[in-house]
Nucleic acid binder design. Structure first.
Length: 504
RNA sequence: GCCGCGGUAGUAUAGCCCGGUCAAGUAUGCGGGCCUUUCGAGCCCGUGACCCGGGUUCAAAUCCCGGCCGCGGCACCA
């Protein structure tokens, strides 16, 4: 008769490698602010944060915005990413923005060129490709470092246009993976035409991901990098800088990708859809997307996402999360704190007879938790129930209006959209004894027109209905349970209440 | 094509490093029952998996080899 671990045992994370050799733990999450983060990004973000916490270390948030041209940062993305992380209860000890650290990258580039670890390459991409596939050095590779340095200064001065000069890191010309061979560390971006949202046209020489990340991970003292396994080669590429500079490369853990069944996660795909059909979506956080903001808007709780990610662990194999699974976890968590309210989809009028007026009803917001209640004083015998429920009933059937009364159907006129019923009794046990269906309803005088958005794959249905007027007392953002329909989040209250369906 | 990573029930995951306690645990799904003023929650019972083939061993989900399948990378993206 003892209560045992009925609470969900927190799956503990496996230990990080070589923690004792570093003496401390510092991790980072490095999103590109070219869009919002999605469920897949939540994995490295949350795991990095959790590991830092587990080892009482530090956690860094770093915005990687060094491509104003192809992955142009969205100005509001910086803040929305911060908001999403905070919502996930992720907090960071330090924050950096790469586009604000350009001088550091330049100084390391200079040093690297000086010591012969990098060079300025004036080849066209085509020319270089030829040398590379022949595993031969391009003519610029063997220039004296002073000469390369001169070209570097010319790059910085804006002498070259896009595509005319790059800085390459000297690697192994024989490397089996051609992309590793003398990879590009800096390229020129015409910021007059492609201004950076933070620095405008101030810089034309931009570090690539591999260069900026390599330098930052070193100077920020990152000990453990958790990132998607699509980055595996980048570890190889960046290692060349580390060995030239005599730095120690952080421990790397490659994570598998996360897919969410039936959802669009890909940033580029979402951006494309928003561009092509801007009016078909409810914004960047449309409930059909797999972004954190979308899931939140749909009523998925922060705890749910954290549990999902925690359950995935640190495997390097990909995972496809099923919606059923998310819904089950969310339901379990939300059930304890979601207020119950009644929403009547496709309503039809039911006129009650034999009801002494006025009649007062007190409905608790939750069957067991103490979440308060609302009181309705019924002064007219007109209520609405779902057409679908009525269609299953016939004359003489007993049905219980939840929390209110047991009624006998007297007359159904689907044409006129009206039915009549006689109030028989009020006690639920009487409804039980005759096996009556218990349905939700709203009083005409205490209802408001409302919309319920239901996302189904790429489709978004809007169901019109009536909701209890006491929804006005609840707040936007609140996750409620619509009785007999399922969980939903209140998306707005004015001019009419709009809810977004989460799951049954 | 070339490099790299991975394959446990419908889905996800534990176990694999350090072979036996694994005739494989957990969650979800599915079937059944109880409970309940919801088609929600809770409780109980049941269901279902080690990619294939060799090898090592007294013993392999775990180690080795080969195959198959899946994924990632091969950018002046991150």
């Amino acid at each position: 008769m003892e209560i045992q671990k009925s609470e969900v045992k927190k799956k503990t994370l496996p230990p990080l490698p070589n923690v004792d050799r570093w003496g401390y733990v510092k991790t980072r999450f490095a999103p590109n602010p070219d869009f919002l983060i999605h469920l897949g990004n939540a994995r490295p973000a949350l795991l990095s944060f959790l590991y830092a916490k587990m080892y009482k270390g530090k956690f860094v948030l770093r915005f990687e915005d060094t491509d104003p041209r192809i992955k142009t940062p969205i100005p509001e993305a910086y803040q929305r990413i911060r908001d999403d992380l905070r919502w996930l209860e992720v907090s960071w000890d330090e924050e950096y923005i790469q586009s604000l650290r350009m001088e550091l990258y330049y100084s390391i580039a200079k040093k690297l060129i000086e010591i012969g670890g990098a060079y300025v390459d004036l080849c066209t991409p085509d020319e270089f490709r030829k040398y590379r596939s022949a595993r031969r050095a391009c003519p610029h590779r063997n220039m004296a470092s002073e000469d390369s340095l001169e070209l570097w200064d010319k790059m910085l001065e804006g002498y070259y246009g896009e595509g005319e000069a790059v800085v390459r890191v000297k690697t192994d010309l024989e490397h089996p993976d051609p992309s590793v061979i003398d990879w590009v560390a800096f390229r020129i971006i015409d910021t007059d035409n492609y201004p950076h949202p933070l620095t405008g046209s101030r810089y034309v020489v931009w570090p690539t991901y591999n260069f900026a990340a390599a330098v930052d991970d070193h100077f920020m003292g990152i000990t453990h990098i958790l990132r998607g396994r699509e980055h595996a080669v980048n570890t190889v590429k960046q290692s060349f800088i580390y060995s030239r500079m005599g730095w120690r490369y952080p421990e790397v853990i490659n994570l598998g990708r996360v897919n969410l069944e039936g959802f669009i996660l890909s940033k580029s795909r979402i951006k494309e859809l928003l561009n092509r059909y801007p009016h078909r979506f409810l914004g960047l956080d449309d409930p059909r997307f797999g972004t954190i903001a979308s899931l939140r808007r749909r009523g998925i709780l922060s705890d749910t996402i954290r549990e999902i990610i925690n359950n995935l662990g640190v495997k390097s194999s990909d995972a496809t999360i099923s919606w059923d699974n998310i819904a089950a976890i969310n339901r379990r968590i939300a059930d304890k704190r979601a207020k119950r309210i009644m929403f009547v989809a496709k309503p039809i009028l039911l006129v009650l007879e034999n009801l002494k007026l006025p009649y007062q009803i007190v409905l608790p917001f939750h069957p067991s938790a103490n979440l308060g209640s609302r009181t309705y004083t019924i002064t007219t015998p007109r209520v609405y129930i779902q057409r679908e429920d009525l269609e299953k009933l016939g004359k003489g059937d007993v049905v219980r209006l939840m929390g209110f009364a047991n009624v006998v159907i007297k007359d159904i006129d689907l044409e006129r959209g009206e039915a009549k019923a006689i109030v028989e009794s009020f006690d639920v046990s009487e409804a039980r004894s005759v096996g009556a269906q218990i349905i939700q309803w709203v009083a005409e005088e205490h209802s408001a027109k409302a919309g319920l958005y239901v996302a189904e794959g790429l489709r978004l249905r809007k169901i019109r209905g009536l909701v209890e007027s006491s929804i006005e007392r609840l707040s936007v953002g609140e996750v409620v349970q619509l009785i007999r329909l399922g969980f939903a989040r209140i998306d707005s209250l004015h001019p009419t209440p709009i809810l977004i369906f989460a799951h049954v």
